[in-house]
Each structure stands twice: as structure tokens, then as C-alpha cells.
């Protein structure tokens, strides 16, 4: 064998395990999902080609309620961007200022990210429990008995009750990313601004925040795509109920697949999710570019 063929052979051997995994589990299935989405299929019997009917039904059928589920996840996305990220940024800016106990606070605030969402969900199930949950117990004890609710069982409160732990759990994640950025700002620059009489607020506004913009972009993208994909906590807390009040696209997808055996429709939802995630990522990239 010539040296060149040996080199090529080695190259292929090095790439092979990764490529097999990646193409076999990610790329080929995406193509297949797209393919299935054009069929009426129960997963086992023959497939019936129906063109874009699944997509049409998805967006027009009230029985499926995709638009409502999508609306819920977009609401979560908005709350993530306008509530969760500001809290994270605030914490990152405070800790990045080298205050006392910085490392300790950082480590504690990051902790919920590491805990399994199922564990967090189970904990909050107990917190929200109507009769014994700590939330209602505390409300009763401080004389606000009229505020107690069946938090996860009432359509009006269930969505909020699902969102609260979701937002809470990942504050620490975004805070950590932003903190890393804040720490990357040169201390000299900060010092110089301070000597010129800038307040902490002004330093943050004019020096720190502009220089961590790339990280803010990543955080916004993660927050939005994460909201679109959200599943675990809602599955544990309500599984879309009561009366579909907390349905999100992922819970719909799972129900389509495993309760109604509609594999074509389940694939259609999967495809919509991928398209939406990529579309939002592109949109946010564009928005951040325009601002520069």
C-alpha cells in the first residue's frame, strides 16, 4: 500500500466511531422524522402518504391544541428572557465585582442546575401539595389562608406553578456563563472607569455589559430554545394537565406517540420543534448583529 492510502485509511478509522454514532443517531433520524411527518402511520402497520396534511391539521385542529402548547412555551421563553436572564445577569454582575463570599455564593446558586429535573419536580410536587405542601402551610400560618390554592390542579394557576421551578432551576446556569464573562473584563478597565468617577452601575452599563454581549447572546438562545424544548418538569408536575392548561409541544408529542399511536403526527411536532429552534437561533444571531 502506498503511504497515501495508509494515511487515508487511518483518517477514516479515527473518524469512524464518531461518525457512526453521529450520523446513525442524529442525522439519519432527523431525515427520517421529516419523512414520517408526511405519513399517516400508527408505527407498525402500513404507512399512508398524506402530504402536508399532518402539518395542516397541526396548525388548524383545536383537538390537538398545538398552537396553545406553542403559545405556552413561547410564554415561558418570554419569561426566561425578561425575568430569568435579568436575575442571572444581576447576580453575575454582583458576584463579578469581587465581593466577599463570591465563590461560595456562586457554588450555591449553581447547585440547582446539577440536580435532576425529576428530583426538582418531585420536590415541587410536595411544595405545591394542596393539603400538606409547604407553600399552603406557610400561607395559612402567616394568615393568608385565602391565598392557598390547589396550585397544580387549577387551570388558572397550573401554568405559573410549572414555570416557577423551571425558571428558578436555570438561573444559576445563565449566571455562571455571565459571571465567566464578567470576570473576563479587564480589572484595569474597571479601575480606570472608577477613577474617572463612574459608579458601579455605570461601569456595568457602559463597560461590562457591552463586553459580555456574545455571552448574553448565547444565554438568550439557550433560554429560548430550552423553553421550546421544555419537557421534564412539566411532565413530572402536570403532564400537560389540568384540561391541557400546561401543555407544551414536547408533552403533546409524547402523547401523540404513546397514547394515540400517531407516529406521523408525533414526527410532525418533532420537525416543527427543530425548525423553530433553528429559526430562533438564527433570528437572535441576526438581532445581536444588527445592534453592533
Amino acid at each position: 500500500m502506498s503511504k497515501k492510502t495508509i494515511n487515508n485509511l487511518n483518517l477514516i478509522l479515527f473518524l469512524l466511531p464518531g461518525l457512526i454514532l453521529f450520523v446513525g443517531v442524529l442525522i439519519a433520524p432527523i431525515a427520517l422524522s421529516g419523512y414520517y411527518s408526511f405519513f399517516n402511520w400508527n408505527g407498525f402497520g402500513p404507512k399512508e402518504f398524506i402530504g402536508f396534511s399532518n402539518y395542516k391539521e397541526l396548525f388548524t385542529s383545536d383537538a390537538i391544541g398545538f398552537l396553545k402548547a406553542l403559545g405556552n412555551s413561547l410564554l415561558l421563553a418570554a419569561l426566561s428572557v425578561f425575568v430569568q436572564l435579568p436575575v442571572s445577569l444581576g447576580l453575575a454582575l454582583l458576584l463579578g465585582r469581587s465581593i466577599k463570599g463570591e465563590r461560595g455564593f456562586l457554588s450555591i446558586f449553581f447547585m440547582p442546575v446539577l440536580i435532576s429535573t425529576v428530583v426538582i419536580g418531585q420536590l415541587w410536587l410536595k411544595i405545591y401539595n394542596p393539603s400538606y405542601g409547604i407553600l399552603n402551610v406557610v400561607l395559612t400560618k402567616i394568615g393568608l389562608e385565602s391565598w392557598t390554592r390547589i396550585w397544580l390542579g387549577t387551570p388558572e394557576t397550573a401554568l405559573g406553578a410549572c414555570f416557577a421551578p423551571t425558571l428558578w432551576q436555570y438561573v444559576g446556569y445563565h449566571m455562571l456563563l455571565m459571571y465567566a464573562g464578567v470576570k473576563g473584563v479587564s480589572p484595569d478597565l474597571r479601575e480606570a472607569a472608577k477613577i474617572d468617577g463612574a459608579t458601579n452601575g455605570q461601569v456595568n452599563r457602559y463597560i461590562v455589559i457591552p463586553s459580555i454581549k456574545p455571552i448574553l447572546k448565547v444565554s438568550v438562545i439557550f433560554a429560548i430554545t430550552g423553553s421550546l424544548k421544555s419537557f421534564d418538569l412539566i411532565y413530572v408536575l402536570t403532564n400537560g394537565g389540568p384540561l391541557h392548561a400546561t401543555e407544551v409541544p414536547s408533552t403533546l408529542m409524547i402523547n401523540m406517540l404513546f397514547l394515540r399511536n400517531r407516529y406521523g403526527m408525533g414526527s410532525t411536532i418533532a420537525v416543527m420543534l427543530i425548525v423553530l429552534c433553528f429559526a430562533f437561533a438564527l433570528l437572535i444571531n441576526r438581532l445581536f448583529k444588527e445592534k453592533d
Partner: peptide, 24 residues
């Protein structure tokens, strides 16, 4: 190009492949 190809994996949600993987 191959590196960029692998990096697509960072943005692909696991939902994308759940039906085909389950069926397979």
C-alpha cells in the same frame, strides 16, 4: 467542514430523533 458538521449536534434537540430511534 467535518468539524462544522459535528458541531451541528450542539443545537439538535433530542426530540428530533425520538420517533425514528424508538421505531428502529
Amino acid at each position: 467542514a467535518t468539524n462544522a458538521f459535528f458541531m451541528m449536534g450542539l443545537t439538535i434537540p433530542i426530540h428530533a430523533s425520538i420517533v425514528p430511534i424508538y421505531v428502529t
